[in-house]
Amino acid sequence: MPVCLIAEPIHPAGVALLEAAGVTVRHASTPRLERIPDELREIDAIIVRTALPAEAIDAAPRLAVIANHGTGTDGVAVAHAHALGIPVAFTPTANVRAVAEHALMLMLAVARQAVQADQATRAGDAGFRFTQRSMSLYGKTLGIVGFGHTGRLLAEMAQGLGLRILVCSPNAPAERLATVEVASDLEQLLQESDVISLHRPLRADSRHLINARTLALMKPGAILVNTSRGGLVDEDALAEALREGRLFGAGLDVLAHEPMRADSPLRQLPNLVLSPHTAGSTREALLETASQCARNVIDALNGVEPAHLVDPTVWPGRRIHGL
């Protein structure tokens, strides 16, 4: 029986699918997979949620498929896996609605000072209602950077709240952009938007997309939201903009270092709403993501090309395995 290692906990529905298909499921003793080469030596598949470095892949000579739990694969040594003929599957649609909802929640939480209101209520601060400075989103411009599945869903939700939608997504096909206004470039979007929501994958050309220069282009009193990847934002520059009050606030579900470092410049900022990378972790999204991962593994081990591969051209020359 083939063996699938699960690096971090997934919804039981995914485990059940694997076992029903005759796959032996094992759970890693630590998500730091490079530290457990003995647990990797006899696996045929792996499901990962955070990181899979090259040295861990090298420790698994039978590994025939990597299933990434989620959309972003920047934590996986994808190029190294592909060079060894190991296809990398992912789940680009499983949790996008949950992430879009979370982005909208962060926008509203920052704009309406939800965290401060909660704290004031618990502290018995009845005067907060007279001193709070929340803002309405109706009639404002939402700039969406990256217009894939999540960006499109967020646009639909935000249009229902009466926001103007402005999009910067150079690689999106024209038909996808037909119902929204398209910015000529990122600079225009930053200059015109009251709220900016990031939905770009983390690549060499997008690291620190939001930095001191681009923050300076944003409207005074704007809001920044990031539910994509922490590396898109220069956190030192963002912290400075928030401390100085150049931005109204920010909402971050992702950070450059997770969990947040004790010395992070973001930790003590009152105009920042944080969540610990949970945007795509609703009960419904976790069930669907785990199920898609399991189906990707089962298909690959059966010689069937999984529905979503990072690079389908790897499939014909893959390492061969059959149930």
Score class of each variant (00 low, 15 high):
175 E>I: 01
141 T>V: 14
138 Y>C: 12
160 G>R: 04
146 G>C: 06
192 E>C: 00
190 L>G: 00
178 A>W: 05
159 Q>M: 14
195 V>Y: 07
200 R>H: 06
157 M>Y: 13
176 R>P: 00
153 L>Y: 13
183 A>H: 07
200 R>C: 15
138 Y>P: 04
165 I>V: 15
201 P>R: 05
138 Y>S: 14
174 A>F: 00
169 S>P: 05
152 R>Y: 13
187 E>W: 07
172 A>F: 03
144 I>M: 09
161 L>Q: 11
167 V>Y: 11
173 P>R: 12
156 E>W: 13
158 A>I: 08
163 L>A: 07
185 D>E: 10
190 L>M: 10
153 L>M: 15
156 E>D: 15
168 C>H: 15
176 R>T: 14
167 V>D: 06
198 L>K: 03
154 L>S: 10
155 A>I: 00
146 G>H: 01
154 L>D: 00
173 P>Y: 11
166 L>M: 13
192 E>S: 10
195 V>G: 01
171 N>Y: 03
143 G>E: 05
156 E>R: 14
182 V>S: 13
191 Q>W: 02
164 R>M: 08
181 E>N: 11
153 L>D: 13
163 L>K: 10
177 L>C: 12
189 L>R: 01
169 S>L: 08
198 L>F: 05
178 A>N: 09
158 A>R: 01
180 V>D: 01
162 G>K: 12
171 N>W: 04
